[in-house]
């Protein structure tokens, strides 16, 4: 490993979510500098990466968003296999949240609504590039084991700071009474 051994390697991942949790992460403002001293972001939609691939092993994977598509399933298995601690960040990752609101409807009806009914030019359901939707949107822990659950839509910057500080210190953050769904 080229990294200094003292630094904690962190990956952040964005699945089916609105990116609000990542925005909240950035909301840590000047505390980001402090965190950066102890943390190495090795994979994230927020940073420029030298490689497109997920590293062989990261210490902490922070995942935003629910599991909605075949691609999400593949990704989350890959992430779980290559991460020591998996943090579900925000209500979509923890509980499915807003993306699950499509669950009462059939996938073909949703696709038809999105790609055919409301489209004027070349209405068609894509069968390439866009990953296949799963029948139900699910939270991450229904697919792979999750180590830390951070509720909130989005979780506040303070909460995220607390979680990262605890993880950097080698502790499992105890979020009892610190978080709640929805806020």
């Amino acid at each position: 490993m080229s990294k200094a051994p003292s630094k904690v390697t962190v990956a952040t991942v964005w699945l089916d979510g609105c990116s609000g949790c990542h925005m909240s992460l950035l909301d840590m403002d000047e505390r980001l500098i402090e965190i950066a001293k102890a943390v190495d972001i090795v994979y994230s939609p927020l940073v420029d990466r030298k490689t497109k691939d997920y590293p062989e092993m990261v210490d902490v994977a922070i995942v935003e968003g629910a599991i909605s598509s075949s691609e999400d399933i593949e990704k989350i298995h890959m992430i779980r296999a290559h991460s020591r601690i998996l943090v579900a960040l925000g209500d979509c990752a923890v509980a499915g949240n807003v993306p699950t609101m499509r669950n009462p409807y059939l996938v073909k009806d949703i696709e038809s609504r999105a790609y055919i009914e409301n489209v004027n030019v070349q209405p068609q359901v894509p069968d390439q590039v866009v990953p296949k939707l799963l029948p139900f949107v699910r939270p991450i822990h229904e697919v792979v084991p999750v180590d830390v659950f951070v509720q909130g839509c989005p979780p506040s910057a303070d909460t995220i700071y607390f979680v990262l500080s605890e993880l950097v210190a080698g502790r499992t953050p105890d979020l009892t009474q610190r978080t709640r769904p929805g806020a």
Partner: peptide
């Protein structure tokens, strides 16, 4: 919601 926070329910183990 308030009870979920107070009693420390941080996720739901049962599928909806």
């Amino acid at each position: 919601q308030a009870l979920a926070q107070r009693l420390g329910m941080d996720h739901v183990r049962f599928a909806n």
